[in-house]
Design a protein around this nucleic acid. Structure first.
Lengths: 157, 157
DNA sequence: ATCCAATCGTCAGCATGCTGATGATGTGTC
DNA sequence: GACACATCATCAGCATGCTGACGATTGGAT
C-alpha cells in the first residue's frame, strides 16, 4: 500500500489529512533550519508578536497567533526561563501580565531571520514559482473564513 | 493589531504559520462534527488504515499516516482500551504486533462516514467550488514533494 | 555458528494544543 | 455599596508529535 495504489487514495484526497501532514512537515523543516536557535515555530511567532507589540498582555498575544491562553502561558514560561522574554504585572489591571521581548530575544529574532525565510520558502518550493503566492493567499483565505471555528479565534477587527 | 493592519501581515504572509493555523482549525471542525464518537482525527486515520489493511504491523501503519512509531503505539493503546482495535503478536516475527479493526471499530467507522465528509468539506467550503479540487491537489503535491523532510516519512513506493 | 546491522515496539522526557475548573480581579447595574 | 457578570492567568488532565535510548528479535555476512 502506498500513495499510488488506490487503497490509500481515500486519505490522500482528504484536505484535513493533508493539512495535518503538511503542518508536520513544516515543523520538521523549521527544526532543521532553526536547529541552532533551539526554538519552535510557536515560540518564534510569540516573539514576533511581542517584538511588534511591546507590553501586549497574554490573552491578546494568544489571540494574535491563534493559540489558547493556557498554551501561550506555557510557551511564555519557557521563553522567560531562557531570558528571551519578560513578563510584568500591570499595576492598574492586576489581572494582566504584560509581555516584553528582552534584548536577547530581539537579537535572536534578528539572527533567525534568514533561517525563517528559508523554512517558509522550502515548504512551498515544490510549487512552480508562479503558484506559490496564490497558494499562500488561498491558505490565508481559508484561515480567515474558518477562523471562528476554533476555540481561540484569531482577533479580527 | 489585527489581520488587516500591516503589523500582522508579517505572520499572515507565512505559509508555515498559515498551515499550522489551518490544521488547528481542521481539528476544531472535526471535533464539532465527530463529537458524538469521541475520536480524534489521528485515531480515525489509524482506524481507516487498519480497516483497509487488516493485520498491518504498527510500523507500517505509522508510515501510512505519517506519524512516528511512538505516537502510533500510544494511539493504538487508546483505541484498544475502547475495544475498537485488537493487536496480536506475529508468531514468526516476534518483533511485530499486527493490528486488526474490531467489529465495534468497523461499525464506528461506518457511522462516522457522514460526519467525516462534512468535516473535510467544511474546511474547504469557503473556496469557490471550482477551486476546491485544485487546492487539495496542491496540498497533496506539497506533501508528496516534502515527504522526506520529516522523520517518519510516509511510505512511498 | 557467530557477530553485525537493521528493525520493531516501548520508555522517558519535552513541547504544542485542547477542555473544564478555579481564584483573582474589573466592570456595570441597581 | 452590593451583586452579577465578564475577563485574565493558571491548574490538572488528556491527546498528538517529536527525540534519544533501550531490549528483543531478525537476517545477512563472514
Amino acid at each position: 500500500m502506498s500513495l499510488n495504489d488506490g487503497k490509500a487514495i481515500e486519505l490522500f484526497a482528504r484536505p484535513g489529512f493533508l493539512v495535518r501532514r503538511l503542518h508536520q512537515i513544516y515543523v520538521a523543516i523549521y527544526l532543521q533550519e532553526c536547529e541552532a536557535f533551539g526554538t519552535t515555530p510557536v515560540q518564534t511567532s510569540v516573539m514576533q508578536v511581542a517584538h511588534l507589540n511591546p507590553g501586549i498582555d497574554q490573552a491578546k498575544l494568544a489571540a494574535e497567533i491563534g493559540v489558547d491562553r493556557t498554551t501561550t502561558s506555557n510557551v511564555l514560561a519557557r521563553l522567560e526561563r531562557r531570558a528571551l522574554v519578560r513578563r510584568e504585572s500591570d499595576l492598574r489591571d492586576k489581572r494582566l501580565r504584560r509581555v516584553f521581548l528582552e534584548a536577547a530575544g530581539e537579537t535572536l529574532l534578528a539572527e533567525m531571520r534568514g533561517a525563517l525565510d528559508r523554512a517558509h520558502g522550502r515548504l512551498i518550493a515544490p510549487l512552480p514559482a508562479e503558484e506559490r503566492e496564490a497558494f499562500t493567499r488561498t491558505l490565508r483565505r481559508l484561515v480567515e473564513a474558518n477562523n471562528l471555528h476554533s476555540r481561540t479565534s484569531l482577533r479580527i477587527l
